[in-house]
Design a protein around this nucleic acid. Structure first.
Lengths: 213, 213
DNA sequence: GCAGAGCGGAACGATCCGTTCCACTGTTAG
DNA sequence: CTAACAGTGGAACGGATCGTTCCGCTCTGC
């Protein structure tokens, strides 16, 4: 056998485990502060800085990986939501899923800190398609206000991501509350004024992806 | 007379005008980025760094002044709103006023960057009282969901302040839209589920005021 | 055993930023 | 008219931060 009977104790196994530990730490740290120093990630992971640089070419590479993971998670949540038969439940479930996974912070808030790959561009495009499908279905259910557009999701997610308290579980609770209020506001209601101002336009929130911040 | 007939052209007048120019620039700059360098303020104001340090003991003093001004503006908006006879209109008008004046960014987001004065403490206390009064009146109007508490205002304002695009006027529009959705969600609606999770507690959002960030 | 993968963390160099300092300029009091 | 000076612009300084490199050590896998 080329593998020993107990590979979990070996140096290679430890290294393999570090792969995940480091990613997890990076997620936690950069979620808390998008421009945290790389040393903070190493500390949080309980490893040295070398362990990081052995795996990633630099900070930018790590951030890119993290963001791409978040994007993939977004796609997974959206696809799972689309499997839900009820149109409104699919819409609401999608938003709750994105909020719980903190995907918005992982993607939008990390923008501008690295140059994106083309694969990320494709994934982002697909993410937009899925979101549009979910909004369309929500409209079809008749429960979503007629004057709500896909780009309003950006506002909603930003609003939820903006809620932060030191305790992460409590943060999740408060974000759920925020989301509940927002969903109430997005629902059709008798005798309500139309939403004010021109709705958010396509690409209006993409400014973070262009150059510095 | 000790004052010349045309004081607007003199050096002292120029200096007096700089007082406002600098404050205005500081507001714009720190609103855009709470940890912007002080040189950015000087550049924006079109003055040298000395002009800043002649007026303020240091960055912290400037930030403190700015924040206190924001707090006072908050009080002014709240008192103006309380003069409105209609309970719900007072509540909605107050939120719109705070959002438009961008007071939230001026106060909460600058927290932790300076040590507050006791006068600010008093003003903050009074701000809480006025907010409570407005929420109470909104409850009395019957249009505000029964399970909404004063601290929910923090969530709402944070949500609006989180909306940012490069153009400031457009930002205002989008924030108004966000606010409209939120107000819809805060309104009583037939057959709606209660808001999830424990409501935000008193002092739960004060963590920014304690130590670094 | 031994070659080397994997690692910890000190050290380095590049920024960045708050603050100080000094030379200069136009004003104003006498 | 002129001496003093309030007001100013901006270079320079010192400290802090952070990404990255590098070196010496350990422990594994053969």
């Amino acid at each position: 056998m080329s593998t020993s009977p107990k590979p979990l104790a070996g140096r290679r196994a430890q290294a393999a485990r570090n792969d995940e530990v480091i990613l997890e730490a990076a997620r936690a740290v950069f979620l808390d502060d998008p421009k945290a120093p790389i040393a903070a990630v190493a500390d949080r992971a309980g490893v040295g800085i070398s362990a990081l640089y052995r795996r990633y070419a630099g900070k930018e590479a790590l951030l890119r990986q993290l963001c791409h993971d978040g994007l993939r998670r977004y796609l997974a949540v959206a696809e799972e939501a689309l499997a839900e038969p009820d149109n409104w439940a699919a819409f609401a479930g999608f938003l709750a899923g994105v909020v719980d996974a903190d995907v918005h912070s992982l993607t939008v808030h990390l923008a501008g800190t690295f140059t994106p790959t083309e694969e990320m561009g494709r994934d982002a495009l697909r993410a937009g398609e899925l979101a549009t499908a979910l909004v369309d279905r929500a409209h079809a259910s008749g429960r979503l206000r007629a004057d709500v557009v896909v780009q309003d999701l950006g506002l909603v997610l930003e609003a939820c991501a903006a809620v932060r308290v030191p305790d992460s579980e409590r943060t999740r609770q408060l974000r759920r509350r925020q989301l509940a209020v927002l969903l109430g506001g997005l629902s059709t209601a008798p005798d309500s004024d139309p939403l004010p101002g021109p709705p958010p336009a396509a690409g209006e929130f993409d400014w973070r992806w262009r150059l510095r911040e």
